[in-house]
């Protein structure tokens, strides 16, 4: 007997949240879990590695590897091949038969890369070089120096997995045209792990006060679990860089998420029926708990029509 978790047709951060919310009930009885992704017609980098993180967490909770029904949509399944999803998925899911391996250049900024050690961080930073140049300079219109800045950001965010999570993690980045929301291209970088998370990591030094407090301490104030005042640079540097590119940063850990959201995205959210948030920084609490840390960075193409808010000047 197995329990089926249906993956939403748009496999993005919202679909990830929906699946996380279902986990406690689904894994309680200890039955096998099947992630049914057959109806998926669109995937984001965050959704792709989110599925891996969910699979890994199911195994942690039930002791059994979950199954995964691949998308029927050929474009999506082809994209997942090109993004090297299946090699990573083989270590997480029971898969139906042998999945195709990609051939040639994926055109992605970063295909799905497993991060376990510092060597993996070195590898992903070296690998991103040419792709980053082509995409950041060529398609997003960023400066020549952006390739270096992106590589530093990637290194810092991936190091968090090795230094703090104590677990396997994944990184993935892709550009796509965010037509419906923004009308231009964005690059999305997703990095996540299913390790100890911010609360436990900071709890090694400070009195633990919940995942929101831990996230705020680390992301907004640059605190680290180490007394050494040279520590805690990484997330601060990432925030500064994202701000400089008029992008958005979201970091989820435990039951909370801290966001540093660009003016254009807050306006779009308000236009879509939401309420305009005057502050860049937002803290969400009461999310369904999930281990580790999940990072999403959205970088918009540099176009004049993006009107930066006063704080992004």
């Amino acid at each position: 007997m197995s329990r089926v978790l249906s993956v939403s047709p748009e496999l993005d951060h919202q679909a990830f949240e929906a699946l996380v919310a279902e986990l406690p009930d689904a894994t309680r009885s200890g039955v096998s879990i099947l992630f049914d992704a057959s109806a998926v017609t669109w995937v984001s980098p965050y959704g792709l590695i989110g599925l891996l993180a969910l699979g890994r967490e199911v195994e942690q909770r039930t002791g059994k590897r979950p199954m995964l029904e691949p998308p029927r949509n050929r474009e999506v399944s082809g994209y997942m091949e090109r993004m090297e999803f299946w090699p990573a998925a083989q270590n997480v899911f029971q898969l139906p038969g042998k999945q195709a391996r990609r051939h040639g250049d994926s055109g992605a900024l970063i295909e799905i890369t497993s991060i376990r050690s510092n060597e993996d961080v070195h590898a992903v930073v070296k690998k991103v070089g040419e792709g980053a140049r082509r995409i950041l300079q060529g398609r997003l219109g960023y400066s020549k120096a952006s390739v270096i800045h992106f590589s530093i950001m990637l290194s810092e965010v991936c190091q968090n997995i090795v230094e703090h999570a104590g677990s396997l993690g994944w990184a993935c980045a892709q550009t796509y045209r965010w037509q419906r929301r923004l009308g231009r291209e964005v690059a999305v970088l997703a990095v996540m792990d299913v390790g100890i998370g911010f609360e436990q990591s900071l709890g090694a030094r400070n009195a633990s006060t919940g995942s929101a407090a831990a996230l705020e301490a680390a992301v907004l104030r640059g605190e680290s679990r180490f007394k050494d005042r040279g520590r805690g640079h990484g997330l601060q540097a990432i925030r500064r860089q994202v701000l400089e590119w008029h992008g958005s940063l979201r970091i989820r850990s435990g039951a909370a998420m801290v966001g540093d959201i660009a003016e254009w995205e807050r306006r779009l959210a308000a236009g879509a029926g939401g309420e305009y948030a005057p502050d860049r920084v937002s803290v969400k609490t009461g999310l369904p708990p999930f281990p580790g840390a999940q990072v999403m960075i959205v970088l918009p193409a540099a176009e004049e029509s993006i009107t930066p808010g006063p704080e992004a000047a």
């Binding site: 930073v125 530093i152 290194s155 810092e156 190091q159 040279g230 640079h233 990484g234």
Partner: peptide
């Protein structure tokens, strides 16, 4: 050096 990240700059240079 092609690039140096913040962690490496702290460990090598600052320390």
């Amino acid at each position: 050096v092609v690039m140096i990240d913040y962690a490496c700059a702290d460990e090598i240079v600052a320390k």
